[in-house]
Each structure stands twice: as structure tokens, then as C-alpha cells.
Simulated scan of single mutants.
Amino acid sequence: MSYAVGIDIGGTKIAIGLVDQSGQVLAKNTLPTDHSVPPSEMVDRIAAAVKQLATAAGIKEADILGIGIGAPGPLNTKLGQITEPPNMRGWWGFPVVDSFKRHFELPISFQNDATAAALAEKWIGAAKEADNFVYITISTGIGAGIYSHGKLITGATGNAGDVGHLVVDPTVGTCVCGQQGCWEYVASGTAIARQASELLGRTVTSKEVFDLALNDREPEMERLVNQVFRNIGIGCVTLINTLDPELLVIGGGVSQIGNPLFNAVRDYVAHHALNPSGRNTPVIPAALQQEAGLIGAAALVHLNY
């Protein structure tokens, strides 16, 4: 049996796992992303955790095909660098691939985290039968992985799919990227919590907002959530009109709201996609959820990306 190491780097935590050729996670661990230390020290900690996992599982380095790394963008896969992710400023310009090479002589693959998650959904998740689909993650921000004509579309530097910065409503406030009204500024989990907190005059989480809207039927929160669902639909229609996928797969924390979200988005797509066939595009939940990034990072190795 051959294994791959999957490493999913995030702003709050880093998931590490050993994944076999069938996509099963043999062993995994998570580390908090410590922003008080240099990223090179975090790589030291990750490398130590990988070696501990392998030793505990009885796996020798000779049985490991390689290491796959998923990380938030912007990044540069050609240079092996994390360039300027907004919530990881201490990592800007960090040569993450070269840093891991200090610890391992294994091949290293590196892609955007949403791109890696899309590959996981293709490999063993909700998109196994699709050759043209978009995986959308809606959580702290919004990102996407694009799979078209039977392969990942990564772009020149690995940043294809940074759809959170499509402009949806330029009449509202300024996104972290400097544009007005980006998709993630109006429809991410962060956006939901921010807008609701402003309306209510107190700090609330996105989960609390959905509870207030869908369970308590609080009118102001209902209006907000309906607008968020509409904004998610607008982004989905933009992707359908641009890429003509056969399937949209939605994951991330906001997708956990389930049917209210998916029914609203399907309805919007059915009414507003340009092409009649696009109006019938299935919009379905991701299958892998919290492990998509980890499995996707390992898939970069197992599927030779």
C-alpha cells in the first residue's frame, strides 16, 4: 500500500493526514496556526507532526509517494510560495515548498486549498461522475475549484477559482481586496455575521443569524438571510454562465444550513441562468466537508497533479 501526506494550511488551523490510494484517511492530526511565530517554525512543527503520525501508524518514508499541500490564496504554485492571503499576513511571500524540502526528500505538490478540495470531491466525493464541475466553498470567505474537460483548471500561478472577489453588489462596502461589494463581502459566513451584528447592535455568529431567521422567524434576520441566499445564487449563475458546468458542488460552513440554502440557490439558478440547460444545473452539497482539504491535498499526489 502506498500513502500520501495531505497538509491543509488554514488561517486558524492546519490539518495533517496520511491518506491511502483509495482516499481513506489512515491517521490525522491538527495544529493551531500560531501567528506569533515565523511560518518556517510552523513548518518545523508540521514536519514533526507528519513524522510522528507515520511512526505511530507504522508507515515508512519509502511507502510515502509524496506530500500534497493546500493553502489559501493568493499564492504562486510556480514558485512554491504563499503570496498574500488576507488572513495570514505573516506568511506573505513565504516559500512554503522550499521550507518543507528542509525536512523531506519526497516530491511535493502545492495548490490552492479550494482547488485541492475540488479534486477530493472528484476523487471520492460528490462529483465522481462529473467531468465539468465547480466546487464552491462558502465559509470565512468564498473560493472555488474548477474542474473542466476532465482536469483541474489552476491558472498560470494557481489562482484560478478566486471567485470570492467577483463583484456582486458594487453599492455596498469595501472588501479586503479593495473592490466594492465582492461576493464574499456580501455572502460569506463572515459577511453574514458582520451584517447581522450591524443590524442588531450586538455581535452574533452566522449560525445565530440562521437560527434567528429560520427558527425564530425574526423579520430583519429573515430579510438578511434571503438576501444572502440571493447573493449566493447570483454568484452561482455567474459561474454557470461563464464555465457551463454540469454540476455545482457547495461546501464550507455556510452550506451546513442545508435545504433552505440549496432550495433558494436552485430556484435562483432555474430563473436566471442564461442558457436553458444551465437553468437545470444540479446544485448539490459537498460530500467530504471538513476533510475535503486534507484529502484533496493528498489527491494532488495520488492523482499526479
Rank of each mutant, 00 (worst) to 15 (best):
Y3S: 00
V5I: 12
G10T: 07
I14F: 08
I16S: 05
I16L: 14
V19R: 04
D20C: 09
Q21F: 10
Q21N: 11
Q21K: 14
G23E: 01
Q24S: 11
V25A: 08
A27R: 13
L31N: 10
P32S: 15
D34Q: 13
M42F: 12
D44L: 10
R45A: 11
A49G: 07
V50Q: 03
A54R: 12
G58R: 07
E61V: 06
A62V: 11
G68F: 07
G68T: 07
G68K: 03
I69T: 01
A71D: 03
G73D: 06
L75W: 03
L75Y: 06
K78T: 11
Q81F: 11
T83S: 12
N87A: 10
R89N: 13
R89P: 12
W92T: 09
F94I: 04
V97M: 07
F100K: 00
K101M: 13
R102A: 12
E105N: 15
E105A: 14
I108W: 01
I108R: 01
I108Q: 02
Q111L: 15
A114E: 02
A117L: 12
I124F: 15
K128Q: 15
N132A: 14
N132W: 14
I146G: 00
S148Q: 13
S148I: 12
K151C: 08
T154K: 13
A156F: 15
V163S: 05
V163R: 08
H165W: 04
V167Q: 04
V168W: 04
P170M: 10
T174D: 11
Q179M: 15
Q180P: 05
Q180W: 10
G181A: 10
W183P: 01
V186S: 03
A187L: 02
G189L: 07
A191C: 07
I192F: 09
A193E: 07
Q195S: 09
A196G: 04
A196V: 03
L199P: 01
R202T: 13
T203D: 13
F210C: 04
F210I: 05
L212F: 04
L214I: 11
D216W: 11
R217G: 03
M221A: 13
V228A: 11
R230Y: 13
I232E: 02
G233K: 00
G233S: 05
G233T: 00
I234D: 00
I234F: 05
I240W: 09
V249C: 14
I250D: 03
I250G: 04
G251R: 00
G252K: 00
G253A: 12
V254Y: 03
I257V: 14
G258S: 06
G258D: 05
L261A: 06
L261P: 01
L261G: 01
V265A: 00
R266H: 08
D267Q: 14
V269S: 03
A270F: 09
A270D: 09
H271K: 13
S277D: 06
R279K: 12
N280V: 14
N280C: 15
N280D: 15
N280G: 15
I284W: 05
A287Y: 08
Q289S: 09
G293C: 02
L294N: 00
V301A: 05
